[in-house]
Amino acid sequence: MKVIEYCVDEKATCRLAANLGLLFKKNGLAGICIFLKGDLGAGKTTFTRYLLKSLGHVGNVKSPTYTLVEPYDLLGLNVYHFDLYRLADPEELEFMGIRDYFNTKSASLIEWPERGGDLLPQADFVIDIKYKDEGREYTIEAFTDTAKSYLNDFQRHD
């Protein structure tokens, strides 16, 4: 199941992220894993920034390009924002204890998930961002039963 949204500008991207944030506030975020895909500069971190703010984060959202992960305490959960762009080898994730991040008391947003190999869990959602005309096209795809029910709810209320 998937939803395709076109965002003409950053304001539209903010609205899309806020709508997803409302969905997570209503249905829960515990244990959810979101992969963010797209070319360099497509807007993965910008989308993540707006999503985290819609979930209640106040302050800056730093790109974890060099640190690999930035933690946030939101909705009573540990929400982790990963950026694996600079990862040289998926085995580096083992050294940081990557498996400990994925549990029912956390949620994860992972940029460049293809660089994590088999060490990442199955994504509940994959958000693929592509350049289109002057804006961006967001394809939000659900891969688990939970994600499919969320996305169905998103389509009914969007």
Rank of each mutant, 00 (worst) to 15 (best):
D145C: 09
F95Q: 13
N60S: 13
N103H: 15
M1Y: 05
T48A: 15
V69N: 02
F82N: 04
L93R: 00
S149A: 14
G97L: 07
V8H: 04
N19Y: 08
P113H: 02
M96F: 13
V61F: 02
F47P: 12
L119V: 07
L22R: 13
K105C: 15
L16F: 04
D118R: 09
A18S: 13
D133L: 12
K132A: 10
A88F: 08
V58M: 03
G116T: 02
F35W: 09
E91P: 03
R86L: 14
R49A: 10
V79R: 10
A88C: 10
I32P: 11
T45Q: 00
W112Y: 12
K53D: 09
T13R: 01
E92G: 03
T144C: 01
I140E: 10
R86Y: 09
W112S: 05
A142P: 11
H81L: 12
T144W: 00
L75A: 11
Y138R: 02
L51R: 05
F125G: 01
L36G: 09
H57E: 15
K62D: 07
V58W: 01
Y50H: 15
Y66L: 03
A88Q: 15
E94T: 06
G76L: 09
V8T: 07
P113C: 05
W112G: 11
D73M: 07
L22P: 00
A18N: 07
I140G: 11
L36H: 08
G97H: 02
